[in-house]
Amino acid sequence: MNDMTRVERAVDSKDIKINAKKVQVYYGATHAIKDVDVEIEDKTVTAFIGPSGCGKSTFLRCLNRMNDTIDICRVEGDILLDGEDIYDKRVDPVQLRAKVGMVFQKPNPFPKSIYDNVAYGPRIHGLARNKSELDEIVEKSLRRGAIWDEVKDRLDAPGTGLSGGQQQRLCIARAVATEPEVLLMDEPCSALDPIATAQVEELIDELRSRYSVVIVTHSMQQAARVSQKTAFFHLGNLVEFGETGQIFTNPVDPRTESYITGRIG
């Protein structure tokens, strides 16, 4: 756990971006998330950790209502984004997801060109008034995705032809192209090799300057490396939530301690 000290800790307090209160999630009869309260800050990387099946991914998908696509899934409680309930009837999930972007476990570029992959979001949301503006957005997003230098000469090549790590950075670039305020990442490095993982982690740290990033990860080292805040989930409960350094060095709950020392999980 030496590398933990390497991460510069953000000590100054920030705005609260997402505020979840008493969130319950049911899959049919299964109670998947129980009574979760969590506050996610702006310009911070928040990590969700916990053993498999603990509900961390489920909870993440609640934050931009991706669970709407699953018929049997039901969400109760309040999740506020900038003080507005995202499960309000008047909220269009489409608009919500433009604000709360998402990057998935497996890189999932569309079977289109690299350019079209990134331009897809801006196009559907009407962010560019003309071709040159769109070009600008694409370039800016690819730069933010730290992949511009690798693909700038072959923007017309299919996105599916890139390597795994490049695909994932392309997906991140695609996500930031819609100018989201929050970026959700569901185990973004689990399908990548160590070098690609390092590149993506570096990228996440850079993204922190503009977005609130929430990352679900299996790897405690990764959580320690990239996040400022960590939430530990276990069997659908939020066991502990706090500064990453504190969670890893001085956990309050015995279950957290068991997990980070490798006794459960």
């Binding site: 991706m66 489409v94 559907i124």
Partner: peptide
């Protein structure tokens, strides 16, 4: 995953179907 990627960017269902 293809659909999720599109929904995650805020596309509507019909946009996802037609364009992805």
């Amino acid at each position: 995953a293809m659909r999720d990627g599109s929904y995650g960017l805020g596309a509507t269902q019909s946009e996802t179907i037609r364009q992805v």
